[in-house]
Structure formats: C-alpha cells, structure tokens
Design a protein around this nucleic acid. Structure first.
Length: 595
RNA sequence: GAGGGUGUAGCGAAGUUGGUUAUCGCGACGGCCUGUCACGCCGUAGAUCGCGGGUUCGAGUCCCGUCACUCUCGCCA
C-alpha cells in the first residue's frame, strides 16, 4: 500500500513549527465531530497532536474523516498552525498548535475496542492481558516500557564504562535441582534426558570467573517453576553480575554507584552515596522482616522486661517458654479510628504469620492506659509509654511468641499500619543492605540443614573451623539489597575452594559422590586456579516496578503471565501434537482426579 | 495445598428486608451540531446477572456445589 510516511511524530510539534507542512502517522485517539468540523487527536508513541478537518478541507478529506473511528491507523498530511491564545490547550505539550488537514488516508481500520486506550485502563487485568497489544498502547504502559528500556540502557552504559563484559550464557543447561523447581526441556536426541532452563546463571558466571573474565554482567532471563505472585513470575529478568578479586564491600560499592547512576539518568533522582546497612538479625528484630521498608520507621520494640513485671499470665508463660514479647506503636490518626473492628483487622494480619493473638492498649491523657490488656500493666504505665515513645491517642500492639514468629507477625502489623495510616511517602526510594545472613537453616520436613541462600556462598572467616559444629550459627558473606520493602537484589562472596565447597555440600546432606555427579563441572573448574570472586543479581522487573510506582511486575513486563501461569493472549501453555510428543519420546500421564 | 476478595451488556459499575419490564456511565449503531480538546444534544440496539443445583408463589439478591480471575499463606537456593 502506498501511503504518506510521517515527517514528524505526534509529540514534537510546537509553536515554532507554525506554517510547516507535515505528515503524521498514528492512531485515532479521539474524534470530536462537530458536524462541519472534526477535531481528531492523533496518537503515537511520542504523544498526541490535534489535527483539524475544517470548513476549508477538501471534499475527499471530509469523506475520509467521516469514516473514522477510534484506533483507526491513519496518515495525515497538513499544515501546522499556531492556535490563537484562547484555543491553546495547556494540558498538552502540543497544545499550542494544531494541524490543518489537506490529505488523509486510512492505513487500517479497527474493530470496536474492548476497552478504551486511556492513560490508566479500568479494565480488569484479565481483559488487559488478553488484549495486551491494545493495553500496551496506553500512555502509562508506554511510559513504563520506556522506563524499563532506559533502566537497562543505563545499566549497560555504566557497567561497560567500568570494564564489565556482557556475556551470554546458555538457557538450555544441566538441571541442578535444589532450590526452586526447574523448568525442563526434553531432549529429542537423547531419550529420557532433559535440559533445564536456568533459575539463574549462577554456576556459569562463577565458571566465567575461573576463565579470567574478571567483571561480567548479563541481562539474564531466569525461570522458576513456582507459584506466581504480584512480584514474582515464572520467568523474570535479572541483572546478573560477578567480579573476581573482590570482597563484600567492593560489590556493595559498585551497586551503590550503579544505582546512583541509573536513578539519576532515568528518573533524575539523587540517591544517597551509600545505603543503610542492617544485619539480618537487626532487620528481623527491629522490623520483623528481612526486607524492611525504611520509608517509615515504626520499629518493633522489645518489652520482655515490662511483660515480666506485668500481671498478664499469657505474656509470662511465653517468656518462661523462651519466647519474647514485642510491641509496635500505632500513632494516632485522624483518618483511621482504632475501633474493635480495626484492631481485629490488625490481629488477622498478625495471625497469618502464626501469632495466636494481638494484644492492645490505648494511650490516654497523662500516660493513662486504656482498654485491652491495660489492666495487667498497673504501675508500669509510665515505663511502657516512655519505652514506646507513645502519646495520647496512640495505640500499642503486642505479640508474644517465639522470636521469629513474633517478629514476622508484628512485622506484618507494622506494614499494615503504615499503609492504613498513610505513613509512606510514595515518592521516596529507601534502599538498604541486609548483611550477615545465616548461611544455613534447618529444614524440618527433610530433616537436614539447607543453604538459606544457596550452597555457593562463603561462610564468614570466623566460622570456617567450626562449620559442622553448629551450622545454625554460621553467618555467611551474603547480602541482599532492599528497596521500599522489596528484595531487589541478592548476592554473596562465593566459595572458590573445592574442599570447602564439599564441606558445605555435606552439611546440606549431599555426599561427595552425589556432589561430583551434580556439580562436578563446577568442582572440576575449581581445580584449575579459581580466583576469589563474588557477585550479585538485581531483579530488573522489581526494580522497574518500584521506580514506576507499581505493586505488580506485570505492569512493567510487556507480555506477562497471570497468577495461574497462563498467558491469556496466546493461551499458553497449550497441548501439543502427538508427533511432537513422539519426537521427544514422551508419554503423558494424566493426573488422577480422584487422588 | 490453604485462606480472603471479585464475577451483572464489549468495558467499568449500581441493584434496598427476595417482588412487575434489571439501572447508570463509557463504547457501538442512527441522527443533529463550525472551535472542541473526557465536546454537546436526541434516539436505537445490546444481559443465559460466571456455571450447576436447591429453597420459595417468586432468586441478580438466600443456601449448597463448582469454575474463572485476583491478593495472600505455603512455595520461591
């Protein structure tokens, strides 16, 4: 089809272009037909320009304009006119001009759209995903996809400048189960054998270090066959990085500089030179999570001593059983009344993480305690109010249980309070490092120790001689980067010693022969002069989600899957032909519905 | 695997203690309109109230089951 190709985009014309002949290509965003005159908002990726088919327009142009509907793709030839002052639209960048149409061609028509292409669609997510190509036309989706591009581009710029090589690693690799469930790809050539899609390029990047590549990065797609969440998809994208001859602080510094550059470049936001550091224990103890949102404070406060002095038998029995009592302050709010109903909502939040209940006290005038469990704190009013920094109208909420359960439960209450009481600055970016993670945790179901992070992380030096004695107490050279309550990166200094690596495997119940079978290629590489090395892997989707002010990574992924792991647009996953199954030597065993 | 929420026209929503023909906005279709910019005005069509069963003289509304979507717990080295 012959058509006039654009000479300008729909976002660029200004008053200074007055009188210029132009051609625009784009989509009909709105067509306001006044009978004798059409005002058409023509939209492309760059913006919206008003084009006018007026009283002086040629007959053939009027005929075409009368056929227009929303989302028709058209070409417009016309003359730019500065608008008179009274007709300027100050809400549009192109609002000072309009284009008088002298030629118009319909490039393609559009069926009635299932939802309007607005800045923010109010269609439900399923509909948006089914018609993702239309949803992506909206201004906000276009902005987010651009932000993601800018983000990745700034990363590549910065790291290339710092002598990092971008190296691709395979997406068909050996399955090394442990951690998440692998996606498997059956081999046609070798019946019964499978490739796995990488959960991350972890071992490959470590081997690149053995190869001497020193500083590596990759925008790497990762796959984990686990249930999706708002901030989790089956496949996601990491900035995978690894460096040789570095210690922990070198990695943290590079990341601080990287994100400083990227935020400045993509959002013109100045980040602090260094990010707050919290040990894993302090994060858990003070905020109740290993990924605290530091845009607000609301610390969890230890009140073991006051609970012990109180007359509340429930608290005392928890303390006697080796548990702890913690409290968080709910600051008085003009928008949320601390009603029984609201307290019950808070209690529900605590119970999700195993708390048996949520005790509460309201603070009245002159530090008087009212309601809830206040009667058990006779004589302790002033101490409690001072400990909590509470004022009249505040409420104090308690959880008493084993340490971890208490932290998790009250941490959930803290998060709910911050949301409900509007304590969060939506424009803030609060980064922090979580360091000194435990290296192992005991898996009750399987009955043995497992790596809390992964099995390739270096134990801190002071534990090296006594790893096996008390695995639970071993801290690793691990670090997570947290932004606004989301884990956005995770990394460690790695083990580069075969014997140490084998000790870790053994603690994780993997005997030497099995380790050689599963990880032999890594251990072999480590027999040939491996350098000390470490790295980190920020999640691209989560970072861009937070930068875009969203709460679901689907908003920053062009073609995401839904929570049921289905892509409503192409309806994947799908059945395949018997021929394909035959090629792959596969027989499908249907699930037993009665099982 | 478990819990919460949602499901009414193409889209978004309302629908009272169960009661006549299920309402509104957007969109679609037809008409009018020369300065709008979420244009306006008049009219028309469009619904298996997610699906199945039950209670009832009568169910969008109550009960049971089921499905889908969504958020969360588990899971996610």
């Amino acid at each position: 089809m012959e058509y006039k190709q654009r000479t300008v985009t729909c976002g660029q014309l200004r008053k200074s272009d007055d009188g210029k002949p132009v051609v625009l290509n784009g989509w009909v965003h709105r067509d306001r037909n006044h009978g004798g005159i059409h005002f058409i908002n023509l939209r492309d990726r760059y913006g919206i320009t008003q084009v006018v088919v007026g009283e002086n327009a040629p007959k053939d142009v009027v005929d075409v304009a009368d056929q227009l509907h929303m989302e028709y793709c058209i070409a417009v030839e016309g003359i730019v006119h500065a608008r008179p002052d009274s007709m300027v639209n100050p809400d549009m960048p192109t609002g000072e001009i309009e284009v008088e149409v002298v030629g118009m061609q319909i490039l393609s028509t559009c069926e009635p759209v299932p939802f309007l292409i607005d800045e923010d669609s109010d269609a439900k997510e399923e509909t948006r995903l089914r018609y993702r190509y239309l949803d992506l036309r909206s201004g906000n989706m276009q902005k987010r996809i651009k932000l993601r591009h800018d983000f990745v581009r700034a990363i590549r710029e910065f790291l290339s400048e710092r002598d990092f090589y971008e190296i691709e690693t395979p997406t068909l690799i050996r399955s090394t189960p442990e951690g998440a469930r692998d996606f498997l790809v059956p081999s046609r050539i070798y019946p019964g054998k499978f490739y796995a899609l990488p959960q991350s390029p972890q071992l490959l990047k470590q081997i690149l270090m053995v190869s001497g590549f020193d500083k590596y990065f990759q925008i790497a797609r990762c796959y984990r066959d686990e249930d999706a969440r708002g901030d989790r998809q089956l496949e996601f994208t990491q900035l995978d990085m690894e460096m040789s001859f570095v210690k922990r602080d070198d990695v943290l510094l590079v990341m601080e500089q990287l994100f400083g550059h990227v935020f400045k470049k993509t959002m013109d936001v100045q980040l602090p030179e260094h990010f707050t550091r919290l040990s894993w224990h302090d994060a858990m103890n003070t905020y109740g999570v290993d990924k605290p949102d530091l845009r607000y404070d609301l610390p969890l406060v230890d009140v073991d001593d006051l609970a012990r002095e109180s007359s509340f038998a429930t608290f005392k029995s928890v303390l006697e059983a080796g548990g702890c009592v913690k409290a968080v302050k709910a600051p008085a709010s003009t928008s949320v009344a601390f009603s029984r109903k609201y307290i019950s909502e808070l209690e529900d939040a605590a119970k999700i993480y195993g708390a048996k209940g949520l005790a509460w006290i309201k603070v009245g005038t002159d530090s008087a305690l009212e309601g809830g469990v206040s009667k058990f704190f006779g004589g302790l009013e002033a101490s409690l109010v001072e400990r909590m920094g509470a004022k009249e109208g505040d409420m104090i909420l308690f959880v008493a249980d084993q340490w971890k359960k208490t932290c998790n439960s009250l941490g959930a209450v803290r998060i709910k309070l911050a949301k409900d009481l509007a304590l969060i600055d939506p424009k803030a970016f609060a980064f922090c490092w979580i360091i000194d993670f435990p290296l192992f945790e005991f898996n009750e179901d399987r009955g043995h120790w497992e790596a809390a992070h992964h099995m390739f992380s270096m134990p801190q030096a002071q534990y090296l001689d006594t790893l096996e004695d008390d695995p639970g107490s071993v801290k690793g050279d691990l670090y997570d980067l947290v932004l606004n309550g989301y884990e956005v990166a995770s990394g460690s200094i790695r083990i580069h010693d075969v014997e140490l690596q084998k000790r870790i495997f053994r603690i994780c119940n993997i005997p030497d022969d099995e380790a050689e079978e599963r990880f032999g290629f890594l251990l072999n590489a480590f027999r040939y002069g491996p350098p000390p090395h470490g790295g980190i892997a920020p999640g691209i989707d989560r970072m861009v989600m937070i930068m875009a002010g969203q709460t679901s990574i689907k908003e920053v992924i062009a073609f995401p899957k839904n929570t049921a792991a289905i892509s409503p647009m192409d309806d994947s996953p799908s059945y395949v032909d018997q021929n394909q199954l035959d090629d792959l030597h596969l027989i499908i065993k249907q699930p037993d519905k009665n099982a």
